[in-house]
Amino acid sequence: MLHLWLGYPNRTEMLAAYFVMYAVAAFQNADVLLLPGVWRTYRSVQASILGTVDADAIPTVVSCTQEEGLRALVSFAQELLPLAYQQKPGHPTDLQRLVLTRPNHFLPWRELAPSRQHVTGPGGPFHPDTVNKPGAFPSMLIFRGLFFESPKILQKATTCYYPSQQHWDAFVASQPEGIPTTETQQDKYFNIRCYGQPSYQRREGMKVVPKYFEHENRWASLLEQHHGEPIPIQTVYWWIQGKHRPGVQSGKRKRGQKLVKCPLFGPLTAYLLAADLSYTGKVAKPTTAEVAEMIRIIQRGSWKALLALGQITDDASAEETGVALKRVYDAVWDGLRTDEARMHVGYDPIVLEHLLCKFSRTSGVRAA
C-alpha cells in the first residue's frame, strides 16, 4: 500500500535492502556490514541504480588491459562528443541521458558545462574583462569554494562577481531568503554535494566569504613575486592550501612570507581553482606530466579511472603516472579525430583529467 500510494520503497531502496538482507543471510553475522569492502559495494550498487556513482565508491581494481582501457575511454569520449555541441540526440543513450540531467556533474568537457560557462562569460569573474578588476579573485574563491553547481548559479541569480565585501552583502540582502539561517535556506545558496561526497562545511559559507576577500591582497602579492609571469600550477595549488610547494628550500622563501589556507579548499578544490586560473593566464598552462602529478597526489576520480582502465597500478611512481597519462592523452587526441572537435572541447591535459573523472563517475550507467 505504501509503495502504491507514496512510491516507497522505490526500486533503488528495495534493491539496497535486498543487498543488505542477502549479505547478512549469507554470512549469518550482521557484523559483515561493517567491513569496508561490503560498504563500498553497497554504495556502488545503490549509486548505479540512481545513476550517480561517487568516484570513491568504485573499487580500485585494474579490470582490463591497457589497450582495452584506451578503447573504452575513447569510446566514452566519442559517445559524449555530440553533447559538446549542445545537441540532444534523437535517441540518446543511457549515458547521454544521464549527462544531460546534470551536465555540471557528468559532462566531460570541462569548460562547456553550465557553471563554468556562466562565470567565464560576460560579467563573470573569469571573463577577460573582469579578471583584473577588484574583487575578481575573492569571487573566484566564492565560485569554486561555495557556488559551483549551486542554485544561485544555475538560476543565474548572480554573475558571481563581487567587487567588494559590500557588493556581496548587497547581493545577499537582495535575495528572497536574505541571510540564510536554516539548512533549507543555506541549500538555496550552496550545493554541499557539488563535488560528490557531501561537505556540510559549505553551509557555513556566509562566515567564510569575508575570509575570501582577505585573500585578495595575498593573491596580488603572489602575482607580484612572479613579476607578471604566469605562476606554475603546483605553486598555486599548494599556496591555495596555505602551504609552500614541496621541495622549495626554506632559505629561498622570503622573510615574513606566511601562507594562509583558503577556507574549504582541500586537495581537489585547490587543483580545480588552479586549473581555472590557468585559463585566465594568471597560472601557467600545465603539461601532461604536471597534471599527472596532481592526479597522483589527489588520488580521486581520475586516479581511479587510470587504475580501472589498466593504465597504472596502485603504487605507480610519478614517472609511471606521467607516462600513462601521456599515452591516454594521445589516444583521446586521436579519438577526437578532427582539430575542430579538439578545439571545440578545449582538449588539453586539464580537460583529460576532467574526462577521466567523469568516466569514473558514470561507471554505474556504463556497466548497466
Rank of each mutant, 00 (worst) to 15 (best):
N104H: 06
Y22I: 15
G281L: 02
A16G: 11
A305C: 02
F106I: 06
T182Q: 01
F213R: 04
Q257K: 10
P151Q: 05
L222D: 00
L306Q: 07
D315V: 09
T65W: 11
A170P: 04
P151Y: 02
H167E: 15
V24K: 08
S363Y: 11
K207R: 14
E340K: 09
M343W: 14
T321A: 14
I297Q: 06
A113C: 13
S174P: 05
L107N: 12
P128S: 04
E353A: 07
L306W: 03
K252M: 12
G251L: 12
A367Y: 11
G228Y: 06
P210Y: 00
I49Q: 10
K156A: 11
T60A: 13
E79R: 06
A270L: 01
P230Y: 04
E13Q: 15
F137I: 00
K304W: 08
K358S: 03
S44I: 12
E229H: 13
T52G: 11
V172I: 09
Q66R: 15
A220I: 13
L73G: 05
V38G: 04
V74G: 03
R43A: 10
L15W: 13
A136D: 03
N132W: 12
V328F: 02
S221Y: 12
S44R: 15
Q175K: 06
P263H: 01
A16D: 10
E319L: 14
P138R: 06
L277Y: 11
V345F: 02
D330M: 07
S250K: 13
F27M: 14
F137D: 00
L355M: 10
S221C: 10
E229Y: 10
G124T: 00
